[in-house]
Design a binder for these strands. Structure first.
Lengths: 198, 198, 198, 198
DNA sequence: GATGAATGAGCGTTCATTCAT
DNA sequence: TATGAATGAACGCTCATTCAT
C-alpha cells in the first residue's frame, strides 16, 4: 500500500501528463484521422511544447500505440456472465448499442484502427488481442445457448460471433441508427421471429 | 468509334490517362490509406511526371473526389428486381458477400471513405448519394415484403435496411468471414428460424 | 558533337545549379567542418530554398558524396611522367607544396574527409580509390629510381610512398610551413645529404 | 591520501566523476567525431543522467575543452634528454611511432582537434600551447645537432621541426604504416643515406 | 499536354540547456 | 549532487503546388 502510493507520488505528475497526451492524441485521431494527426496539435491541446511529447514517447508510432492501448482498454466488450445465454446476448447487444450512442468518438477511432491494422503490424497485434477476448466471450454465449437449446445445433457459432461483431462495427459507422440496428439483430437472434417462413 | 465519343469525343488519350490516374490513386488508397496517399507515387504508377497530375486534377482533393466517384460507380448495390421480396433480399446478400470476397480492396477503400466522409463534406455528399440509392432499393424490398406478408408488419423497414448495410460494412472489414456473416443474416431474415423462442 | 551540346543544353541550367550546390557545400565544409554543415546554409549560399537541394540530392549524404567526388577530382596527384625518377619526385613534391599554399581550403577539406572516412564507408571508398592512384604513381617513381640506381635497393618503396603521403597530409595541416616541409623532404630524398653520418 | 588531496582535497568522488565524463567524451569523440558527439551518450557511458553533466561542465564547449586538456596532457611529446642529438631524434621518432601504434584513438582525436582548432579559438590556444613545447624540444635537438656537426649548418631548424611534426601527424592518419613512415624518416635524417646522389 | 525546377509550409525528431525538486 | 521534466531552436526531409519552357 504505502509503497504503491509513494511510487505513484513520485512520478504522478509525469504519468498524468503522459495520459493527457494519449487522450489528446485519441481525440485528434477521432477528429482528423491518421492522415491529420499532428504531434504539434496534440501537444498544443495539452499545453506543452511539441518536443515534450518525445519525453514520453520516443516516436509518433509509440504514441499511437499508447492510444491503441487506451482505446482497447476502454472498450472491453465482455458479455454479461449471469443469466441465460439469450439474456446475456441481449445484454451484450444493448450495452454495445448504448456505448456507440454514448461514445461515438471512441468507436470512430476503433474503426480507424481497424483500417490501420491492415497495414500496421503493431496495431494489428493489439487489435487482434482485443478482439480475441470479444470473440471468445461471444463464442461462449452461443456454445452454451446451443447446448441449452436456445439455438438450433445447426447454428454456426463462428458465423454468429462474426455477425454480432460485424453488425456492431457497421452500426458504429452510423451511430444515429445503431440502436435500432442492434435492436433488430437482438430480435432476430433471440426474440420472436421477425420473419414468417414462406 | 462509339466508345471513343463516349466522353466528349476529343482527347480520348487524355481521358484514358485521367482514368489511369484515378485507378492508380484508388489502388494506392487501398494499400496505404489516406495517410499514405502520395501524388508522386500515383504519377509513378501511371508513368508520368508528378506535376502532370495537375493537368488533370487541379488539387489532390480533386483527384480524391474522382476516386470516390470511381468507387461508388463500381459498387452499385441495387437489389435484384425480380422474384419475391425474400428472394430479392437473398440475392442481394449473396451478391454482397460475393463482391466482398472478390474485391476486398474495393471494400477496404469504401470503409476508408466512410471514415473520411465524417470530416470531408465533399466525400460525404457523394457517399450519401450513393448510399441513398442503396437504402431506397433495400427499403423497397422490405416494404413490399411486409405488404406481401413475408415479414411481420412490426418489422421496422428502416432498422432492417440499416442492419443489412451495417452487416455488409462490418463484414467487409473481415472479408474472410464475410460469406458466413451475410449467409447467417440471410437465414435470420429470410430462412428457417435459427433461434428457438424461449 | 551535336548531340553532346544538345544534351548539355537541355539540363545545363540544372547541372550548373547542382554544381553550385556542391561547391557551396564544399566551402561550408571547409569553414565549419562536418559538425557545422547545414543544408539551409548551403542553399542560402547558392540563393535557393533549402528544399531545392533535395531536387538534386536525395539526402544530405548524397550531397556530401558529391562533394567528395568534386574534391578528389580536383586534387588529382599524379607525378610528372617525364624526367628521371628523382626529377619526377622533386616535381611532385613541388606541385604538392604549391597546391597546399594555393588552395589551403581544398586540403583542409581533404583532411576532414580523411577523418570522416574512418567512420563512413561511402567516403572511405572514394578516398581509397583516389589515394590508390596517388600511391601507384609514387610507387612507380620509387621502383624505377631503385632500378636506375637513384635510390639504394634497400629503400622500401612502400615506406617511401607512405612518407611522402604522410608528409603532404601533415604539411597541409599547417599550410604556412608546407613549402619548407616538403622542400626539406625533397632534399632528404633526392638532394645532397642533409645529414652527416656519425 | 596524497592522491585524494591532489585536486582540491574536497569531493574526490566528484572529481572522479568529472574525469570519467572527460574520458567518456574523449572516447566518443574518437569514435564519432565532433559531428557525432552527444552529451546524452557521454552521460550514458558514465551511467548518469544527461543533465547531470551540466553540474560539472556548464556547456558542451566546456566539456570539449576539458577533453582537449586531457588529450594534450596525455600526449606530451618531449624528446629524450640524454644522448647525442641524433640519438635523441631517433628516440623521439621511435616513441612517436610506438605511441601511434599503441593508441591510435588518441591520435585520431588529436587530428580531430587539429581540424577543429582552425575554427575554434579556445581549442586553437590549447593546441598551440601544446605544440609549442613539442616544437621547442625538437628545435633544441636540431640546434644542438648543427652545433655538434651532426647536421649541416645549412639545415633549417624550422623546416626540420615542421617535417617531423608533419610526418608524425600524417602518419597517425594511417597507423598501420606509421612505423615504417617514421622509420624511414629516421634513416633519412640520421642514418646512412637512403639515396645515391646522381 | 508534359516536364523539371523550384517553392514553402510544415513535418517528426534531436539535443543542449534550464529549472524545480 | 542528481534527477526528470520541459523547452525551443534548429535540423533533414516531405510533398502538394506553381511556373517557365
Amino acid at each position: 500500500m504505502a509503497h504503491d502510493t509513494r511510487r505513484r507520488g513520485v512520478s504522478s505528475a509525469g504519468q498524468e501528463r503522459r495520459q493527457a497526451l494519449v487522450e489528446a492524441a485519441f481525440h485528434r485521431l477521432g477528429e482528423k484521422g491518421f492522415e491529420g494527426l499532428r504531434l504539434r496539435e496534440v501537444a498544443a491541446d495539452v499545453g506543452v511544447d511539441h518536443s515534450t511529447i518525445h519525453h514520453y514517447f520516443a516516436t509518433k508510432q509509440d504514441l499511437i500505440e499508447a492510444v491503441v492501448g487506451f482505446v482497447t482498454r476502454q472498450f472491453w466488450s465482455s458479455t454479461p456472465t449471469v443469466g441465460t445465454p439469450a439474456d446475456r446476448l441481449r445484454g451484450h447487444l444493448d450495452v454495445l448499442a448504448q456505448r456507440i450512442v454514448d461514445e461515438p468518438g471512441l468507436h470512430a477511432v476503433l474503426r480507424e484502427l481497424d483500417l490501420r491494422a491492415t497495414r500496421d503490424p503493431a496495431i494489428r497485434a493489439v487489435i487482434a488481442d482485443h478482439e480475441h477476448g470479444w470473440r471468445r466471450s461471444l463464442a461462449d454465449v452461443f456454445s452454451e445457448g446451443i447446448l441449452s437449446g436456445a439455438w438450433a445445433p445447426e447454428l454456426s457459432v463462428d458465423a454468429a460471433v462474426e455477425l454480432v461483431i460485424a453488425a456492431a462495427k457497421g452500426a458504429s459507422l452510423g451511430p444515429e441508427s445503431s440502436a435500432e440496428v442492434l435492436g433488430l439483430l437482438r430480435v432476430l437472434m433471440t426474440g420472436p421471429p421477425a420473419v414468417d417462413r414462406q
